[in-house]
Simulated assay, not measured.
Amino acid sequence: MTSVELSHVTKTYGAAAPSVDDLSLTIEDGEFFTLLGPSGCGKSTTLRMVAGFVAPTSGTIRFGERDVTSAPPYKRDTGMVFQSYALFPHMDVAENVGYGLRMRKVATAERRTRVDEALAVVGLAGYGERRIDQLSGGQQQRVALARALVVQPSVLLLDEPLSNLDAKLRDETRSQIREIQRKAGTTSVYVTHDQAEAMAMSDRIAVMNGGVLHQLGEPREVYRRPATAFVARFIGRSNVLPGVVEGRDGGTAAVRLTDGSLLHTPVAVDGGAGDVAVGDEIALSVRSEAVELLGPAPAAADRAEGTIHARLAMVEFTGSSCMLGLDLLDGADDEAAGQADRRILITIPDTDDLPRTGDVVALRPDPARIWMVAR
């Protein structure tokens, strides 16, 4: 096992904006680390720089104490699982898995033993003589994983390996990959745009956008305490509500939203929006499941602190729950039309007693689940 350290790594192509901009992070020994973000955010470029397929424009990459910034891929001791699996159709399963060992001139007997062990680890013992076209998509993915693991790499790199699988198989296979990685104990760097994959599999997540690292942390921390409005919107369903700090009381701030609502929120002094003062413009992240539907809204003059008034615009039935889309209303006039940029989403258990489209209702975000983010 080994750690991976990127220090001020930047990658630019010509005069275009950097694909990766001054990225610094450390991946610990044995960690399952995920680079997460939308298409074009720089995550795959970062993985390719770690693999040695792309050279950074500036910065350094270290594996443990070894500087590998200029080292070619074959001298980095990595295993790679590609999005397309890149299996050889003219070889059987055992030949595919053992290909890297054959290139390293490992003796035939040892190669056979290690291939059998690798196939057993990924749950494909006895599949060595199968043709690749006789395997399901999930089995092919595990063959690709066995091929990467059989060379006993210091670092395992996985580039969106589940993107070609259907939803059910993707859920099953991600659990298998994580269990295999735990058993092997290999430092692993995983790239995906799928938030659910990242949350379910990772020890830590690096959220990227536009080549910039927005947040680095454990899945629960990133979900509950997003550092920026982008992270809040990208990870799960979160409402990002702009407002102005109206008061401070120790570790709590009173924030007046643009619709006139007054909410109270914890103040983060070591992350998120940082420490704030009265008059600062900030934004609040409120998760859709952290908002309670109270019922019909009282008159605007009777609006209670900690509540929001909104008009129900849409309902989506999702099985055990419902997603409600509501338009925030101006506190001075609860009949004012909601605007597209003031939509709030909430998730509630399914019930036969839902309000009707057009009804004005009161909502109460859980104060403990509100979080300040940088606008």
Rank of each mutant, 00 (worst) to 15 (best):
G137W: 10
G137L: 10
D159Y: 10
D133H: 14
V155E: 03
L158M: 15
L124H: 08
V122Y: 02
Q134E: 15
S136H: 07
S136D: 07
V121T: 14
G128C: 06
L149S: 06
L162R: 02
P161N: 02
L162W: 06
L119F: 06
I132S: 02
R131D: 01
A167D: 13
L135M: 11
R147D: 11
L145V: 11
R131M: 08
L158N: 04
L119N: 03
V155N: 06
R130A: 08
D159P: 11
A120V: 08
Y127N: 02
G123R: 10
E160N: 04
D159F: 10
E160I: 01
A167P: 05
A167F: 08
A144P: 00
R131S: 00
L158H: 01
R170K: 09
L165N: 10
A146K: 00
E129H: 15
R142T: 03
R170Q: 09
S154A: 15
R130S: 06
S163V: 14
S163H: 13
V150H: 01
S154Y: 00
G123Y: 07
E129F: 00
L158G: 01
T173C: 13
E129N: 15
S154P: 01
L157H: 02
L162D: 05
D133C: 05
Q140K: 14
V122I: 09
T173K: 06
S163L: 13
Q152A: 15
G138P: 08
A125N: 12
K168W: 11
L119H: 05
R131V: 00
D133M: 01
D171V: 14
L124F: 08
A148I: 07
L145W: 02
V150F: 11
L156Y: 06
R170T: 09
L157T: 07
Q134R: 15
G137S: 04
N164M: 09
G137V: 11
R142K: 08
R147S: 14
D171I: 13
A167V: 14
A125S: 14
Q152I: 03
I132H: 10
Q141C: 08
R170A: 04
Q140M: 12
Y127L: 03
Q141K: 06
I132K: 02
D159W: 04
R142S: 04
G126P: 06
V155W: 05
L149D: 01
G137T: 08
G128M: 06
A125I: 03
S136I: 05
P161H: 05
A120C: 07
A167R: 12
A120P: 10
R142L: 13
V150I: 12
Q152E: 15
T173N: 14
Q152C: 02
V155R: 07
V122G: 03
A167N: 10
L157I: 13
Q140T: 08
I132M: 12
R147M: 12
V121L: 15
A146G: 11
G126A: 07
S136Y: 09
D166C: 09
E160D: 12
R147E: 07
D171C: 12
E160L: 05
E129D: 15
V121W: 11
E129C: 02
L165F: 05
G126N: 03
L135F: 05
L165Y: 05
D133G: 04
L157D: 10
A144V: 00
D171Y: 13
R130K: 14
L169M: 13
V150W: 03
A146Y: 03
L156A: 08
G128V: 04
L135Y: 08
I132E: 04
A120R: 15
V155H: 00
D159C: 09
R170G: 01
L149C: 06
G128A: 15
R147P: 01
S154D: 15
